[in-house]
Design a protein around this nucleic acid. Structure first.
Lengths: 133, 133
DNA sequence: GTATATGCAAACAATTTGCACGCCT
DNA sequence: AGGCGTGCAAATTGTTTGCATATAC
């Protein structure tokens, strides 16, 4: 049952490419999207390898996994921020911490808070600006 | 492609039982848990029926679906509240709206906000009170 | 040299769906 | 009577894993 945290990770090209793909987009892609993108660089990379490396990158705290319905999405941005999903176009936008203020009093009730995840939905500015069909 | 919103729903016993189960617990159960519970009342109910009715109840706004990792959880409580998940015991607690204050300025940027989902993680008061092992 | 990572395909787990029959309205 | 809902099992989808080989260190 011991967590094996003395594994010597190799710095493989596959993992580098996957991390670069994630760091260079803000669309919060699915594993499949990352796979297709990675294939342009490494044509015979496998989907299993993509999943394996996403898990490793997440374990190492280099990326985040977002759970949007049943399909995971991944985020190369790990500093403090939140998400907004537009119900019209489906895009996921980053919400800056200065645009959200949150306050809670759960510590007073004996709870320790480690992570705060805020997800908003609605209609984005772009879709709001468009004519209604 | 037209949404069929003129379907005449029948009020089946299966659906009643599933809704009652959800209304009478605050553990935010999975479909499987609901299925097992429902079987005590309707021994030959099928898992497919549970899923179908959960989807219908959600469409009608009578329950909520929480996406906790890859397994959905369901919430029979639909008034404004949030969730806290304990990383030690795995329990999901309801967080009352008066225990969280949130403010954002996204409307000023042209966004329309429809739903706000806040999920906290950490250690609950019960686990905090226990001796460390 | 050796253990970790890969590609491939099969396995898995959660959920959905097709079908013939049943039962609400 | 008619059509929505059911039980059952098979299908689908997203993700994980076993295995033989390749590769980083």
């Amino acid at each position: 049952m011991l967590k094996k945290d003395n594994i010597k990770r190799r710095n493989t090209y596959q993992r580098q490419v996957i991390l670069e793909i994630l760091k260079s987009t803000n669309i919060h892609p699915t594993a499949d999207w990352i796979y297709e993108k990675a294939r342009k660089e490494i044509p015979n990379i496998s989907l299993g390898t993509v999943y394996r490396n996403l898990k490793i990158l997440k374990e190492e705290g280099l990326i985040l996994e977002l759970t949007d319905g049943k399909q995971s999405r991944f985020d190369g941005r790990i500093d403090n921020h939140f998400h907004f999903k537009c119900e019209k176009c489906g895009s996921i936008f980053d919400v800056e911490p200065e645009d959200i203020f949150i306050k809670y009093n759960l510590e007073e009730k004996g709870f320790t808070i480690r992570t705060i995840d805020i997800n908003l939905t609605g209609v984005c500015s772009k879709c709001n600006g468009e004519k209604s069909s």
